[in-house]
Design a protein around this nucleic acid. Sequence first.
DNA 1: ATGATGATGTCAGGAAATGACATCATCACG
DNA 2: CGTGATGATGTCATTTCCTGACATCATCAT
Lengths: 198, 198
Amino acid sequence: MSRWEPNAEGRLQRAALELFADQGFENTTVAEIAERAGLTERTFFRYFADKREVLFAGAEELQKILVDVVHDAPPSSQPLSVVAQAFESINPFFEQRREGAQLRQAVIKANPELRERELIKMATLAAVLAGALRERGVSEPAATLASEAGVVVFRVGFDAWLDPRHKGDLTDAIRDGFSQLEDVSDFGFRRATPAPKA
Amino acid sequence: MSRWEPNAEGRLQRAALELFADQGFENTTVAEIAERAGLTERTFFRYFADKREVLFAGAEELQKILVDVVHDAPPSSQPLSVVAQAFESINPFFEQRREGAQLRQAVIKANPELRERELIKMATLAAVLAGALRERGVSEPAATLASEAGVVVFRVGFDAWLDPRHKGDLTDAIRDGFSQLEDVSDFGFRRATPAPKA
DNA sequence: ATGATGATGTCAGGAAATGACATCATCACG
DNA sequence: CGTGATGATGTCATTTCCTGACATCATCAT
């Protein structure tokens, strides 16, 4: 039996999420989080660079999955379809964590500082994906555009999937997003708003 | 003659920019900034919500200009062209401040915290523009897409304009950006990368 | 058992941010 | 002129975030 409970990082993440959801991000101190996890403030900062980051661990893991898919895609695929394929492959990553993701998203939405952090994470993700596309021979600005568009679709699809009323899995939600993007893309920026279908 | 020098806010902004450019954002304390401006740390926080914000004042002003142009545009214009018109109108706002803007951009680029803040400012701007478009009867997702695309073009054009080697004014740079966007948009996401021109 | 290693704790301190209150300059008004 | 209201600034105290330096504890190889 060990003096230290296992999975310190996970305990900190869990404690933080619970407290943030309960009292709000700003009303929660790092000392509280650490205490609830049975650890010390100092130890918190050994695992996470700052108080916000505790909600964003896992981003690297997700990033790695996406980049790997891009890297392994068949050589001739079109950029956006490679990106779509990558995002459509992350269902397993989130399947078990939907409830936690819902909580987390609500917490982030409620706090500007956390929104800032989320934005930079997404921007970083897009940049990394663009780099992976360029390594496949995709040129600019196609690489950046495909990645940015892909990230937008992911965010929208992810939010839709988190909605308790949503039917279907994350892959479906994201697939829908990409097909809507296709419609919008056909629609074009410069043309007038089409008449509503109804 | 007043005991207080005029334009406290401006003095703080100037002092901050100089110190950030000189020593970096992280190595500069708010106390230093205030001292250089002949004021107190406490007064700094009366003008700016936090240390970062001192670099982003003026965003509301810019935002107001853009929204006004969108608001006053002829009723039938197409969404992206309204947005383009708005951004192409901001030359006067930046004409006198190019040097300061160059410094500022370099400072922001060098610091992740400041990049976060810039990202959320741009996101807010896009959201506000989308709202203004919707008030004109533009439906979603056209409003959001046009605004987001417009902000991207602005950032790219703005960066290009800041480059010391750049010829022409900001409006030119932004106009170029929008016409490139048109090309890219024609190019389409789903099609294969065209062969390089060379 | 024992020494190396890695995880955690303890302590001290700087800097950001905020609230409460004091002080100073200006201006309107009699 | 003077005097009180108002707004800008200063002072002080405090909390919280975050970091460096060092101590301590658990584990594991030998």
